[in-house]
Amino acid sequence: MSFDASEFRKLLESIRFLYGYDFTDYSEASMKRRVAHFIRGRKINSLEELGRILLRDEDTFEEFIQEVSVTVTEMFRDPSFYKSLRDKVIKRLATYPTIKIWIAGCATGEEVYSIAILLNEYDLLERSIIYATDINQKSLQIAKEGLYPIANMKTYTENYIKAGGKKSFSEYYKAKYDSVLFNKMLRQNVVLSPHNLTADKSFNEFQLIICRNVLIYFNQNLQDKVINLFYESLCPLGFLGLGGKESLLFASRRKYFEEIVKKERIYMKTE
């Protein structure tokens, strides 16, 4: 389905106006595909019609948000990233009396449990606070429950081992029919809350910020803005972890970060 560029723009503008969600600086090609997918799935005929429906129907808008915010995630996604956290970051985090971590764009929480497990294996979970945020409320609800399909555990176990896991992965969850429930202990210091990277401000100072596979959905302009937000939210010598294909290349702040593990996109704020 191909959209008229100005019609598409108009739709995004009206969503911003009505609901405060700003998608105007998202990478266009994949945003368009997701909107097209939504339109096809509901047998809507045009962008204009979608605009009219969203105008009067908040429930449809909620579903629209579900669909256009990509929720794809995994536990210990890119195991080498977690391995590098173990090798290069954890020791330095351990020097802080309280470790504050922000996981931005945490989707359904698999990443949050992964980080909690990692901290737990260095006895740091107790004195950590993990703030996990996303714009997708439904995803945050799933994260809160900590209930995931049992079918995924094979991959997650392999990831966990590759990431340098020290225990048997199954110690962290209990099987329940076709799902597994992750140990409540892992969630003890996790705060899940809505936060929109395009609009909301910094809300604390962190020693580590993890934001993976979110920036790829933003255009350069918005990427730069969000990196600024992270810069402001990091303590001096705080760490920033991005997704495997994301970098500070387009960030005006890049000079204020040092590469700690280049390949894994782990950076440290220098000043």
Binding site: E28, S30, R33, V70, V72, N213, I216, G243
Partner: peptide, 16 residues
């Protein structure tokens, strides 16, 4: 990652 072409002839990636 999916590979996509943007209108300004840049590449973008997604994990959709």
């Amino acid at each position: 990652y999916h590979l996509l072409v943007e209108q300004d002839q840049t590449l973008s990636l997604s994990s959709d």
